[in-house]
Computed example of a mutant assay.
Amino acid sequence: MSSNSQPPIQRGRPRSDSARRAVLDAAAELALEGTAGVGIDAIAARAGVSRTTIYKWWPSAPAVLLEGLLERTHESLETRASATTREALYDYLASLIALVRDTPAGPLLKGLVAASVTDADVARALIDDWVAPRRAAVVNLLFEGVRRGEVRKGLEYDVVADTLFAPIYYRLMFEHQPLTERLTRDIIDVCWPGIAA
């Protein structure tokens, strides 16, 4: 072996990470464009990868679409640091309503909920990656509100979170009433008296 010989550069891992990133970006773009019936072929074509590459990480198109959507919508979990608990809850719900009403995230979310009936991976991802972080964010706001004396102690925080979210998802899924800007105020007006210290 010559003294000038160098060990071969291991390029497989970076390529894999790069391909995975390209797939997530493609899935997010297609999802937020509202492209109907997005499948593995469309995601692969947009990402410039093979179907096999996608199936290496995800079991189905809904699974990769959900992860791509989650990556692009994590800011919907954020609230203003200076906000009171009531203001933070208001901002949080308003942000969620705007996301599911004004972007293709709403129709995509409905499609993913439908897919979750027969796809256990999508069902698990919806709970673990979409529902749980949003519930946790609200529960954290309530705990902080208790610490600041704005929220009463002894609440069933999971029930409060369900009560705050239910009208939004109910209207999204059944479309029996519009997801208006006023809905945020109405939810807070109804719920806050039972939450406030």
Rank of each mutant, 00 (worst) to 15 (best):
N4D: 11
S5H: 05
P7H: 05
P8H: 04
I9K: 14
I9W: 08
Q10E: 07
R15A: 13
R21P: 04
A22S: 07
L24V: 08
D25A: 10
A27Y: 01
A27G: 01
E29W: 01
L30P: 03
E33T: 08
A42W: 00
A42H: 05
A42Q: 07
S50Y: 04
T53I: 04
Y55Q: 06
Y55E: 02
K56D: 13
W57D: 10
W57N: 11
W58T: 08
P59D: 11
P62Y: 04
A63H: 09
V64Y: 03
L65K: 05
E67L: 05
G68Y: 01
L70W: 14
R72C: 04
R72M: 07
R72S: 10
L77E: 02
L77M: 02
S82Q: 12
A83S: 08
T85W: 02
R86H: 14
E87N: 05
Y90F: 13
L93M: 10
A94G: 13
S95K: 13
I97R: 14
D102S: 15
T103E: 12
T103Y: 12
T103R: 12
P104V: 06
A105I: 08
P107K: 00
L108Y: 03
G111M: 01
V113D: 13
V117L: 15
D121K: 15
L126M: 12
I127A: 15
D128M: 15
D128Y: 11
V131C: 08
A132E: 13
P133Q: 11
R134T: 09
A136I: 11
V139T: 09
V139S: 13
N140Y: 01
F143G: 10
G145S: 03
R148W: 06
R148V: 02
G149C: 06
E150Q: 08
V151K: 01
V151H: 01
R152Y: 04
G154H: 05
G154K: 07
G154Y: 05
Y157S: 15
D158A: 15
D158I: 12
T163R: 02
Y169W: 12
Y170V: 01
R171G: 10
F174G: 08
H176T: 09
P178W: 07
R182Q: 14
T184F: 08
T184Q: 11
V190F: 03
G194N: 12
I195F: 03
A196I: 01
A196H: 03
